Amino acid sequence: MSIRQIADKKFQIDISQGRTGKRIRFVFEGSEEEARIAEVKAKKQLGKTARDSHLINEIAPDYLEHVRLHQSARTYRDKKRMIYGQILGFFGNYHFDFINNTIVGSYKTKRLEETKGRKIHRQINLELLTLSAMWKWAYENNRCVDEPVKIQKLPYRRPEPDTLTRAEVQKILKHANPFHRAMIGCLYYAGLRMNEVFDLETRHINLDGRFIRAKGKGGYERLVPMADKLYEMLAGQVECRRLCGFNHLFPSLRNAGAKATDMRRGLWGAMKRAGIKKRVTPHMFRHSFATHMLEAGKDLRTIQELLGHKEVSTTQIYTHVALNRKKDAIGSL
C-alpha cells in the first residue's frame, strides 16, 4: 500500500520512483481522502507521471462514448443504465485514485440494504465489473494515477442452464420454416449467441471451407466449423441472399435492408406445430449445444473455444448439467 495509517488522522505516504529512483516517504496529517490528494500532488511534483486525476462524474460520459463505439448496443445500454442508475450516485464525486476496498465494501452494503434482502448479488457484481472496466479505461487514458484495485465479488452461484433434449431440438427444427430453421440451426449446431446469428452476413459463411466467421462479445472473432446439417440449412439461405443482393444472412422480414432482431415468433410457431409446450428460449439451443457435446465426451477446452468463452470457468457450468443427467440415469436403475 502506498498510504498506511500509522495513528489517528496520521498517514505515511510511500512513493516509489522505480528500481533506479529514490523512494520518497513522508508523514501526512489529516483525513484519508486528504492524504490521497496529497499523494497525487506529490507524484505530479516528482514528475512520476503526466497523468491527471478526474472525478468519476467527469470520466463517465467519455467512457460510455468509448463503449458505444467499440462494444455492442446491448452492452452500451446495460452499462449506461448501471452507471447512471447506481454507480455515479455513490462514486460520482470520487476520484478513482481515492477508492479502496473499504469504500467498495460500503457500496456493496448500501446496495444490499436498498434491496431488502432480495438476491441481487449477480447484479451488484455486474455493477462492480462495470466500475472496474471504467477505471481501467481511465487509467489507460491518463484520467487517473493509480491502476484499478482488485475488487472482491459477492458470492454468487450461477444457476444451471436450462437445456433441451436431442429429440426436442430435432422436433423444433423439423417444424420450423427454412428461414427460422437456419437461424435455430446456427444456435444449436454452431453454438452461436442470438445476436451473433443476427449479425451474420453472407461473407461470414464460407461454404467451400465449411466454417462460419462469428463476431462475439467485445468484437472478438472466432471460426466455427459447419456441421453437415447446418451446411444444408445455410447453403440455400446464402444463395437466396446473394440473388437478392442482401448482405445480411437473416434480413428483417419487416424493415427492408435491416437485419433481423427477433426469432421468437418463428420459434414459437415451430414449437406449437411440434407439440412442445415447455418454456423454450433461443439461448437454450446454445446451452444444449454445449451440454450435448459434453455428454458425447468432447473436451471442455474445445467447447470453450467454439462458444467463444474467454474463461474456461464459464464453460464449466455445463459439466454440472451433464453430470446431473448421468446421476438421473443411474438413479433410475
Rank of each mutant, 00 (worst) to 15 (best):
L187F: 01
H121I: 05
H320F: 06
P225H: 06
L253Y: 09
I124Q: 02
E33L: 14
Q5F: 09
P282T: 07
I184W: 02
L131C: 03
R325S: 08
R23W: 07
V104K: 04
A73E: 13
M183P: 04
Y318F: 06
L207M: 11
A176S: 10
Q152G: 10
R111L: 07
N177G: 12
L249T: 01
V27S: 07
G18Y: 05
F289K: 03
I276T: 00
Q123E: 12
E39T: 04
L46S: 06
E232F: 09
I6L: 10
K22C: 07
S332I: 13
P161I: 03
R279V: 14
R23N: 07
F179K: 08
K278A: 06
L267T: 00
T109W: 05
M183I: 08
S31I: 09
R51E: 10
A182E: 05
D199F: 02
I303P: 03
G30V: 07
D328M: 15
Q152Y: 10
K298R: 10
D199A: 13
V104H: 00
G21S: 13
P159N: 07
L230G: 00
L69K: 15
H66D: 10
Y139K: 07
E168L: 02
R118Q: 11
H248T: 05
E58N: 14
A182Q: 01
H248S: 08
L126W: 05
I276N: 01
H95Y: 13
D97E: 09
D8M: 11
M263H: 04
C240M: 15
L243Y: 13
M263C: 14
D146Q: 09
P161M: 05
E32Y: 15
A235W: 07
L129V: 15
D14R: 15
W268M: 12
S132F: 03
Y84M: 07
L192S: 00
N247R: 14
N93M: 12
F96M: 05
T315S: 04
Q170E: 15
D62F: 05
A290N: 04
D262Q: 10
T49C: 09
T314C: 00
Y189F: 14
K119G: 13
E221N: 06
K116V: 11
V104N: 04
I212S: 01
Y107V: 01
E140I: 08
G89V: 09
I15S: 04
F28R: 00
K326Q: 15
E113A: 11
N195S: 14
T165K: 09
S2G: 08
V27L: 08
A274R: 02
R118P: 05
K116W: 10
R279I: 10
G308R: 01
I99W: 01
N247F: 06
L223G: 02
K174E: 15
A138T: 00
L69C: 13
I37Q: 12
F11K: 00
